[in-house]
Nucleic acid binder design. Structure first.
Lengths: 342, 342
DNA sequence: CTGTTAGCGCCTTCAG
DNA sequence: CTGAAGGCGCTAACAG
């Protein structure tokens, strides 16, 4: 493994000069820079992440995580991933601060971003609320050269450092495929989706609809309902929809309050097959008990973890991440999780 | 973050003494040790992995990876994970050496283990061939205090440092569930499994059988075939089995040569629904084209990666891993991977 | 523009 | 049994 010291010796200069050459810090003659760079290339020099991090400690690097809500089933998992990342980066001298927001309150989120910067954040992971003020603030982050990572969300017209999310269109498509599979291609169905103010949810629905149109002439989607941001209201809505659509036999439920959906189906007394998104404990239990047919997971824990690690790699090894990190969606059914015999 | 220097000052000793106290190196008075330990505990001291690794460099730590074959579809992926791990650990001064084996040849594997140790391996990741000589050699590794990690395999009666694998019983169970789902619970089926000299495959089959017995009175498993370690032979066997079981409509195929299974089904000219294990390119293509119904994945890449990282965590942070790291199995179907419209 | 040096936190060696 | 010092590779501050 070659070190800057090796390069310095070969080039007949000091390590300081090599450092300046290889990190574009200026204050170096073009010739020296070029010579050193070519030696480094020839020796296939790679900066040692560990040594760099040890030296970096003095910089006191800090990552701010700004949410759009306080927490919920999905983001509780996301936060677990973020906490796991935290334990991995502390030894590298990088700290992390969490800023939770009042539910979908753009003003509060704006304030949180300001606070984070004021408190010395060198980078931001954010679940942005889709609001002009927030977009404007993100533009300003770019001007201030504070890299930010979009987490579990889609945002148009903003240049970001990187984004970590699932493929919303894909998971909608998969829901269509699953519905076809469990219904044999013929049924009347209802779909419930969370707030369309998150663009991803809209994309997912579009894709789900498209699948049914293209591949499922026998499936009638009787209604698509946007769920409110409350468990009891959600419950009520599902109950009412089921009442007013007495022939519906299948449901796709993509709500933040999974228990609302489960209970509403159960209490309807009907024999309904259903596909749920995500995997909070109620969903897990319901799946095991056969109350729901399948769940589509989007690895929230992994998304939270990745979002931090993108910045970690940047800080420790100057890695420029891909524009998007897409976390795979996958399917669980009863047999994936129930206890095995013996 | 507290450092040994902090502790040294508080205890009124030097960092050297703190180091000896906290790492059980002996040569220290019991009182000093106790006092330092209690201070460390009070301050919630954690050793800094990065600093330790930088110092570790001089030790030249080395991990040997010993396979049971040269490579195949599944282990090609495993190796990708291992290579990814390699890039992550070099900066920590830990190197990795790969030892590929003649197909299932215990004598060769024995030799590889010896070579690895002779070449200075400090730890081993191994896919052990289930043979008394190998078991004996592993026992000796324990005596030599060389930690070893079992990768993608099950082995009885050997004490190992850690094991990374999938849950074979689970994936067999899932195959049963999937078969029920796609067949509507009634069909005649055939199952093909790879060499039962790997215990995991046996466990998987048992679990698959049990599922059918318990939950699928309508499914008749007409035959279960152990596939040879050759693609053309595998192809031939599947063709013959299909011929001699003309009413079979469903297949579960868990072979190393996926293309053999796919082609055999295709060339039979029958309309067969099938569940494949793992996810080599032929499987992927066949899934997209609708030639097979679903695939059960076992994250080979992740298994390879984890096996190395278990040792990495041990070397860099003295982390004693769980006895088993179980990598989840999951299901893919066409809608999970086909290109989306637009 | 370039060299020197003092750390970052830990471990090892060598004196005492 | 304990302390002091040097070094792992890199960065930053200061001196020239």
């Amino acid at each position: 493994m070659t070190t800057i010291k090796d390069i310095a010796e070969l080039a007949g200069v000091s390590v300081g000069t090599v450092d300046r050459a290889l990190n574009n810090r200026g204050r170096i003659s073009p010739e020296a820079k070029k010579r050193i760079e070519s030696i480094a290339a020839k020796l296939n020099y790679r900066k040692n992440k560990v040594a760099k991090s040890l030296a970096n400690r003095k910089l006191n690097l800090k990552i701010a995580v700004v949410l759009h809500i306080h927490s919920n089933e999905f983001f509780g998992e996301v936060l677990r991933g973020i906490e796991r990342a935290r334990t991995e980066i502390v030894d590298f001298g990088i700290s992390m601060e969490l800023y939770r927001c009042k539910e979908f309150d753009p003003q509060d989120q704006l304030h949180l971003i300001d606070t984070a910067i004021a408190e010395g954040a060198n980078a931001v992971v954010i679940v942005p609320i889709n609001h002009p003020e927030i977009i404007k603030r993100l533009h300003r982050l770019n001007e201030e050269h504070i890299p930010f990572v979009l987490l579990a969300s889609v945002l148009e017209d903003v240049k970001f450092f990187s984004a970590v999310r699932c493929d919303y269109a894909r998971s909608g498509w998969m829901a269509g495929g699953l519905l076809r599979l469990i219904s044999g291609g013929g049924c009347k169905a209802l779909a419930f989706f969370p707030s369309f103010s998150m663009l991803g949810h809209k994309q997912r629905l579009e894709s789900f609809r498209l699948y049914l149109e293209k591949h499922c002439p026998g499936i009638t989607l009787e209604n698509v309902v946007e769920l409110p941001n409350d468990g009891f209201d959600s419950y009520q809505i599902v109950r009412e929809e089921l009442s007013s659509h007495p022939h519906v036999s299948h449901i796709v439920y993509n709500g933040v309050y999974s228990e609302a959906g489960i209970k509403a189906i159960e209490n309807s007394g009907r024999r309904i097959q259903s596909i749920f998104f995500d995997f909070a404990p109620p969903t897990k239990q319901a799946l095991i008990e056969g109350k729901i047919s399948a769940a589509i997971l989007q690895q929230p824990e992994e998304q939270g973890y990745r979002a931090i690690m993108v910045l970690f790699d940047y800080f420790t090894a100057n890695v420029i991440p891909p524009e998007q990190t897409i976390v795979e969606s996958y399917i669980l059914f009863k047999e994936s999780i129930e206890a095995l015999p013996k």
